[in-house]
Structures are given as C-alpha cells and as structure tokens.
Simulated scan of single mutants.
Amino acid sequence: MRGEIFINSSKKIPVYVLSGFLGSGKTTVLLNMLEHCKKKRLQPGIILNEIGQTNVEGHLFENQKVFELLDGCICCTIQEDLKETMNVLITEMEHSPLDVLFIEGTGVANPMEIQEVLLSHPYTDQFDLMSIITVLDASNYLEYQSIFSSSTEVRNLIHEQMICGSLLVLNKTDLVPLNQLESIKQKITKKSKQEKTIMESVYGKIDAELLFEKRIHSVTIGKSSLDVEHHHHHHSTLQALKLEDCPVVRKKGFEKWLKHLPANVLRGKGFVEIESSHQLYSFQYASRKVAFTPVPAALNRKPVIILIGLGLDTEQINDHWKQLVKQ
C-alpha cells in the first residue's frame, strides 16, 4: 500500500538500491530519501560504494550509520565485501535496529549483482528488496547513446542499469528543452524493452510516496534479459585518478580547468581551497557543470581532487593540472 512503504508483516528491513551512471544524481536522490526518513523519524542504514580509495562525499552523511566500500565496485571486485558488510549489519541490528537500508552502487555498478546478494541466503531472510532506483542524466542521455561521442561499454552499462531498474528517475530535466525531453523519454522506453515507470526530476526531487513504493514483488528474478557473461568486464577501462597536495585555486580558473578536461573525464569531485575565501569547499563536477559547497572547518578535510573516466591518460591530466597550478 502506498503511504505504508516501510511496513511489512515479515519484519524484514526494506532495502532500496540506487543505481545510475556517473554524475546522474544518485547521491542527491539518496539525500532526499534520507530527509524523508528524518521527517518520519526512521533510522536508516547506508552502504556507499566508491571506485577510488577516497570517499569525498562522506561529510554529506554526518551522524548517519554509514558503511563505506572503497577502491572497487560492488558488482565485481568487492562483492564479497558487500556480503561481509551485510553480515555486520545483521549482527549490529540486534543492538541498533534499522528501519530501512539504502545501497548506493558506484556509477558503473550493475545493480543485478547487488540484487543477487540481497536475494541469496541468509540476506533474503533479513532484508526485503523494495526497489532498484536507476537515475538517468537527461542532459547527457543522448550524448551517452551516440556511437560518435560514447563508447560501447558506456552504452551497454546504461542499458543494463535501465533494464535492472524497477523505477527510472530521469534527473536534470531542467537542463533539456521540452521537445528534446519527450524524445529522450521515448528512446528510454524503447531501449528498456518493457514498460517502466519513468519519473522526471530536478535535483533528484521526487514525491516520497512514489519513490519509496515497493516495486519488486518477486523473490526470484531471472537474468534472461541480460547478457550476464560480460558484467564483470564492462568497465575495465574505467579509472579513478586522485590529485593530492592541491594548492589554493581561483574559483573561475578551477571551473575553467574542469570544463576543459578531456571528454573522457566523466566525473569529478573533491575538496579545494578557494583563493580569498580561506575556506575549504567540496565540489561536484558532472555534465560540464560545477557546484561548490562550503565545508565546515570542524570536519578537518584536506584538499583532494578525484577524477573518474574511461581510459584516462594520467600523464596528460597531470600536465593539465600543472598548467592550472602555474596560473
């Protein structure tokens, strides 16, 4: 029933998996869902997965029960770590109960692999998979689908994420003209090859009742619609590059630097100190757009830049960085 999204007679913990390509807005959707939990006084648990060795978004989840899986991807290199984390959760819930669990995969995770863990013993006895929410970036969707501006592995991955999603959130619709938006929705429907609920959003805002609705009702979900043989290899060229010892930067110069990075840099995030502000800012770079947020000094973060992309030329990016530093 709508409106009773967290209640089920089996007393299992409801689980929501957030999927979507790099920079689509998964974390923003998750933060909105957590805000709803706060209003309802529900205790959430969060599993965050990062490709690199550093999670630069941890400060967004202060005072939350968070488990971080770093330097890998749930769907391949650290799937066993996910199981271990779930085991810890089961043990800890004896003393610190949860009302709901969120799992955010990396931008290159295939949610089918996460689903397999949740539907296997002993996790299926403790957790109830409610929905796999796949977030799509409306502003980049057509570019990612183009054979001229995208790679086969990116197109395949987004296709897999769409097929696995029980709810598709088409985010960043404010960045797309109305006529183009209709075209994108038609293409998504055609690509999905089955009827999917598509919800449009700006900054990941969706009606909470719809977002939390139970959309997965079967305990056995087959893989016949997917070519599972290549799941463990479809993002072999994806890399996370970390730049440390970052000097103070000028805001406009840094924005310009990000926007002139090679096209295969799909995502950027981290912390930088901005000249004349004497303060650290977290930054998010996606869809050729940059957003800055002040970081409280009490968090004691250090400047660091994480760039994620396909087949990155480390030497080229380091040279690019040196040019910015010299300015």
Rank of each mutant, 00 (worst) to 15 (best):
Q64H: 15
K40P: 01
A298T: 13
E4R: 05
V249C: 09
I90D: 06
L42G: 00
L280F: 13
H234V: 04
F283L: 03
R250I: 08
E153S: 13
S149T: 09
V295L: 12
F292L: 08
Q145I: 03
L312E: 01
I114S: 00
G105Y: 08
P303L: 12
G20D: 01
V265W: 02
S201H: 05
F102E: 05
Q180A: 08
T54I: 15
S120H: 03
S277Q: 13
L69T: 15
G52Y: 12
L175Q: 11
K205W: 09
L312C: 00
N63K: 13
K11Q: 08
N55I: 08
Q180W: 03
S218T: 03
T91G: 13
I198Q: 00
L266V: 08
D227W: 01
G105D: 13
P14K: 07
K252V: 07
L226V: 06
S224A: 07
E143P: 02
S218H: 02
E244G: 05
E116S: 09
K11R: 05
C73W: 13
V325N: 08
E213T: 06
H217V: 06
D81T: 06
L168D: 03
K26D: 11
I308F: 06
G23V: 10
E35G: 07
T54R: 11
S150N: 00
F212L: 10
L307C: 04
G72K: 11
D227H: 01
F292Y: 12
N140K: 15
K40N: 09
S236W: 03
Y144A: 14
L167G: 05
Q161H: 05
E160K: 02
P303I: 10
A208K: 11
L168F: 04
V100C: 02
R2C: 07
P177W: 05
Q161I: 04
G204A: 06
H235S: 15
G105C: 12
L82R: 09
L168G: 04
G58M: 10
E182A: 04
V202G: 13
V29S: 06
S151P: 05
V325C: 14
D128K: 12
F127L: 07
Y203Q: 11
K11N: 13
E80G: 12
L48N: 04
Q115H: 04
I306R: 13
I7M: 11
N55T: 10
I7Y: 15
I198G: 00
L142D: 10
M162Y: 02
V248Y: 14
V265Q: 02
P97H: 03
C37I: 00
P262F: 02
E315W: 01
K38M: 07
E200K: 10
V100R: 03
V272L: 11
R301L: 15
K193C: 02
H230S: 00
E68P: 09
S150Q: 01
C37H: 03
W321D: 07
M33P: 10
D125Y: 02
V219R: 15
Q239M: 15
G309D: 04
V29G: 02
K326G: 00
D207I: 08
S225D: 05
L30W: 09
G309W: 01
T28Y: 11
K40A: 07
V325T: 14
I13W: 02
E104K: 09
T293M: 10
H278K: 14
E116V: 01
H232E: 03
L70M: 10
K38R: 13
G45M: 05
I147P: 02
I74L: 15
L89V: 14
F254I: 11
T106V: 08
K289H: 11
S146T: 04
E94V: 09
E255C: 12
G45H: 05
